[in-house]
Structure formats: structure tokens, C-alpha cells
Design a protein around this nucleic acid. Structure first.
Lengths: 308, 308
DNA sequence: CATGCTCACAAGCCTATCTTGTGAGCACCC
DNA sequence: GGGTGCTCACAAGATAGGCTTGTGAGCATG
């Protein structure tokens, strides 16, 4: 739960712009509010932090060291907020939008917003009007149908194999990783390596049947005798929470637990003799390259992001 | 700049709690507001997104698929916001705080908030009262002085060497990486490898003299003839922006450009024959282990986070 | 069939934030 | 010297969004 001292997103954005422009008034103009409003906002932010963030002079404003620190932290929040914004923008039914795409859930959740933000930033930097993207988030089969039928020109799908009958390009991989809670025996450094057979014989926390994650897991373990699950949950967040609390091991998308692994809430376990990698593809119909225009740019951007 | 469709942080938090509890009323109770307020907040959020996020029934509420998507994105924002919150909490002069530490800027900016969030989450999970941390952010030399004089029991410093005269433990590394804008010649895949001599002979974008980043760079290139800088800027954000816009190469902390590299705003270049790694240490005085209590826990947490 | 849970609608209050209007300090330039 | 333009701050009034309280309706369960 968030404490009472967190400024809101608009205030954080204002602070970042002040840092960049070096002036409250200029920042206010950029954000379309008056200089007075900006001044007062910064003031309330300072009362939240308890220290001055901006050193005001009669010829502009600089950040204090504390202000620099807060701006760094705020930048992270705003980066995530921009992805949220891009995601919401893609969901919104302003269907005047230029580029209409469909994507499977993993991609829509973890990758597309970042791609959209990056692409739009690049376009803005080159002085072009950023593309509005409209997205349908659904499962891989439905995405393939939409592209095959021509209803949608560009799709993003996941799966072990490249889809047949459509042109495709690799735009990333989604590795399923096996994680346990920090108190689990496998979390000991010496035991962070188990065999596929051991994994299969252990009762796991899993997603509901039919989910992409579960399908991949079951296919990978198909040849081994599998213990029944300890828990069957319908969201990745629920699985993460259950595993962190010690319910048992689980296999989840690497993207979904990046932060948990970094903070130590979950611990990754290596499973020998098991390939849990899914390939993520952009798919389209027709020529060897994606349709000219924003679609091709987005695919290029995604493919480039995948290489890093 | 953020669009007009971004819900505020409290609203995002509410949505996440609704997802977890499966009930508007329960979520409201947890956040200390009335059920009606929660209902109305979710409603306004839905009008921002343009689609229903929550499927209401007379026996609770579930998220719609769109809602799940938004919750995932919101989770990222809230994770960053929690670090901001922890950072602000550490800055605030509620000096009733239990644990008083000092940290160099790189650590305060990029690592400490995460450690504090992680430690507090672990403590809360074990049913203990989370530690309040109070932080002084300053340069490495001053941190060493504060710890040596006994004014502060625990410090975090950066530098090529471990500090002398104090006990220490490695809590991470901060690699300086060389980056260029995407349009720079070095950004071509075939040229992403330059020698130290080439780097030294190239006019760079640098921080002001005396900054940690610049000191490390100059020491690493000390034996080579160095070209004068193209630009000298006083914040990492300014350096990132200048490099992205094509001003020239720069060496910056890896933590600071993680996101830029991921989105392709900046491109990393490998420099052969150059070690730009700084070791980050926790430091204290006295026994071979950090002072008993929260200080020791924080060091243990940080050291553990460093290993992943 | 009462009780308790769910959520929704309506009225009124309250407070945070915005705008407009004004003023003062500093720098630059004619 | 004094105009011009930039900086930020103070004050007063309007607005809007979010809150609470009060109420009611649908569903499940003992």
C-alpha cells in the first residue's frame, strides 16, 4: 500500500519538466497550465517530501540535490506510466486510429506498450506525427484468424512454432521460468537446479487449463508422470502471490516475474533438460515484408527491441 | 507527456486491490475508504479507458480481460511508485526513524529504494513492523566520514576499491557503459566495438568535473590522450538526452540507461581493453558484521539482491 | 424469511487545484 | 536612466472531483 507522501503523476511529470527546462514558467507552459499553478504544485510536492526540491532564483529554477534524486525516482514511475498510457490508448475505442493490430495476451501485457512508447518517441523526435495504435488483446488462435481473414493487417502471436500460412518475423522470446518462494528448500543456493522429472513429480501452483502458460508447461513435461497441482489459479498475479507465500513451485513467464526476482520475493530455479521457451512472432498476410507504413515500422521496432 | 486517459496512482492501487480481493467493498475497506467511493473511482477509471474493467455481480466483482491487462500495466507503475515512496520516506525528516544510513548518490538513486521496499515487504510478510529508514544522500567521501566518526552506523559507498579502515561487504556493482544515439555511426551493429584509444580520442558528452561518473571515466582513460568534451552537463538525464539527440558518445551508469537501452533510445557500445566497473559496498565500523538489528538485515538483503 | 453480503444511486460537503489579477526582483539594452 | 521581458510569489474567487452519509435492490445461505 502506498504511503501518504506520494505526489500524483501530474506533479511528478511537472517536476521532470522543470528539471529539463530549468524554469517553472516554461514547464507550466509546456504542460498547458499557468505558472502560478506550477508554482503551487511544486510547493505542495515539497511539503510532501519535507525538503525543498527546487532552488528558485529570479532567473530560473534549478533542482536541489534532493530534487535530482526525486526526479530520478519519478522518471521510473513515469516510464511505467507512459506504457500504461500507451496501453490504454491502444485499448480505447477512438477507432479513428491509424494502425489496427491484434496481439496475444503475453505480448499485449508485457511488450506492446513499450514498443508503442518507443516508436512514438522516435517518430516525435523526427518531427513526425506519432501513430495511434488500436489493439485487440485476445488469444493466439483468434489473432491468427483475424489476420488470415484480413480483418486486421498485423498481429502478434506466441507459441512454440511459427504460425503456418502467414508471413512472420521473430519479435522476441518469452521464457517460462520456474520460481519458488524464498523459504522453499529449492531456494537454497546449492539446490537451485532440479531435473525435469523432479519438477514433474512435484505438486505445482498452476494456471487454469487452457491458459498459454499452462499449455506450454504441460507440453514440455508431456513425457513425464506429473503430480496433481497444489493450487490452480486464474491469474499470474495470484500465482506469484501464492508462490511467494510458499504454496509451492510454479512456472511463469519471465517477463511477469522480473521485478519479483530482482527484489527477492521469488527465487528462480534452473530446470535441467527442459525447454520452456516460447517464440513471439509478428504475423501478416501477403508480401514478404509487413504492410508498408506504420505496421512495418512497428515490426521493425519490435524486432530491434528483441535483439537487446 | 502523459495523455489525458491516465488514472491516478490511488485509482490504480484500488484496481489492483480489487483484483486481489475480488470485491469492491473489501478493497475499499482495505484502503480505508467507503464502498461507494471505491465504486465511483472504478467507474471514472472505466470512463477513462472506455471499456468496463470490472465485472460486477451480486456476489463480488471480477476483472474483465481488459481489466486484467490494465492491472498488469498498473502493477509496473505501482512498483516504481513504491520505490519512489520508499525513497521519499527515507528523505523525510521524520527523524523518529529507526535506521539511519548514508549513501552515495548512485546507490541512493538506483538501488536503495528497491532494497527498502523489498526489506519492508519481507518484514510485513513475517508479521513484523517494517523498519523506517532515514537516509542522507551525499558523496562517497562524506559517507565514509560519517561512518568513521560514528555519526551514522551504516553507509553505502561506491568506488573502484573497498574503503580502508572500515568493515565492508559487497552489495552490487555499477558498470559504466558507453552509449551513443541510434543515428551515430557506432550504433551500426558491425561497429559496436571500439578500442579504449578510439574512445579517448573522440569528443564525448560528459558530466561536470568532480562527479563520480566522470572521475571513473578519467581514471580509466588516464594513460591515453583524451580529446576535449563536446558537451559538459550537470545531470545524467541531460547527458542521456544529449546523446539520444546525437551529440556524441557518453559513458553513463548502466542502471541509469537500462530503460533507454531497452527502448532503443540509446545504443550500447562495447569498449575493448577498459574496465569501467565500480564496486558498491556497505560500510560500518567495529565488528566483522554490520550492527545487529535492521542495519544487518538491510545489508543482508542488499547483498542478496546483488547476487541476482 | 431474516441476515448479510454484494453493488448502485443521490445529495451535500469539502478540499485541492485551477485561473485571473497583481507585484516584486533581476538582467539586458537602448 | 528607464523600458522591456524574464523570473517567481501572493491573494481571491471559481470549479470540480472525490469523499461521506443515507438508502435501496439483488442474491445466497442458514
Amino acid at each position: 500500500m502506498l504511503g501518504p507522501h506520494v505526489p500524483d503523476l501530474r506533479a511528478l511529470e511537472l517536476l521532470v519538466v522543470v528539471a529539463r527546462t530549468g524554469s517553472l514558467g516554461a514547464a507550466a507552459a509546456e504542460l498547458g497550465i499557468t505558472q502560478q499553478a506550477a508554482s503551487s504544485r511544486v510547493r505542495t510536492m515539497e511539503s510532501l517530501v519535507g525538503e525543498p526540491l527546487v532552488a528558485r532564483s529570479k532567473r530560473g529554477s534549478e533542482l536541489t540535490p534532493t530534487g535530482e534524486l526525486v526526479v530520478q525516482w519519478a522518471g521510473r514511475v513515469l516510464d511505467a506510466a507512459q506504457e500504461l498510457d500507451a496501453g490504454i490508448g491502444a485499448l480505447r475505442a477512438d477507432r479513428r486510429g491509424h494502425l489496427d493490430i491484434a496481439a496475444s495476451l503475453t505480448i499485449a501485457e508485457h511488450l506492446l506498450p513499450g514498443w508503442i512508447v518507443g516508436l512514438r518517441a522516435q517518430q516525435a523526435q523526427r518531427g513526425r506525427q506519432p501513430t495511434d495504435v488500436t489493439m485487440t488483446a485476445t488469444n493466439t488462435r483468434r489473432v491468427t484468424e483475424l489476420v488470415t481473414s484480413g480483418e486486421i493487417a498485423l498481429g502478434f502471436v506466441e507459441g512454440p512454432d511459427a504460425p503456418r500460412g502467414l508471413r512472420h518475423r521473430l519479435v522476441g522470446t518469452d521464457e517460462l521460468v520456474v520460481v519458488v518462494g524464498p523459504a522453499h528448500p529449492w531456494a537454497l543456493r546449492s539446490r537451485r537446479r532440479v531435473s525435469a522429472a523432479t519438477l514433474a513429480a512435484t505438486p505445482l501452483v498452476v494456471r487454469e487449463p487452457g491458459s498459454g502458460t499452462r499449455t506450454v508447461l504441460e507440453r514440455a513435461l508431456a513425457d513425464l508422470p506429473m503430480a496433481p497441482p497444489v493450487l490452480e489459479l486464474s491469474s499470474t498475479a495470484a500465482v506469484r502471490a501464492a508462490v511467494a507465500a510458499g504454496a509451492g513451485p510454479a512456472a511463469v513467464g519471465a517477463h511477469a516475474v522480473r521485478d519479483d526476482l530482482a527484489t527477492g520475493r521469488l527465487v528462480r530455479v534452473t530446470v535441467t533438460g527442459l525447454d520452456l521457451t516460447r517464440r513471439l512472432h509478428a504475423v501478416w498476410k501477403g508480401g514478404p515484408h509487413p504492410p508498408e507504413g506504420p505496421a512495418r515500422e512497428l515490426v521493425a521496432w519490435a524486432a530491434r527491441a528483441a535483439r537487446t
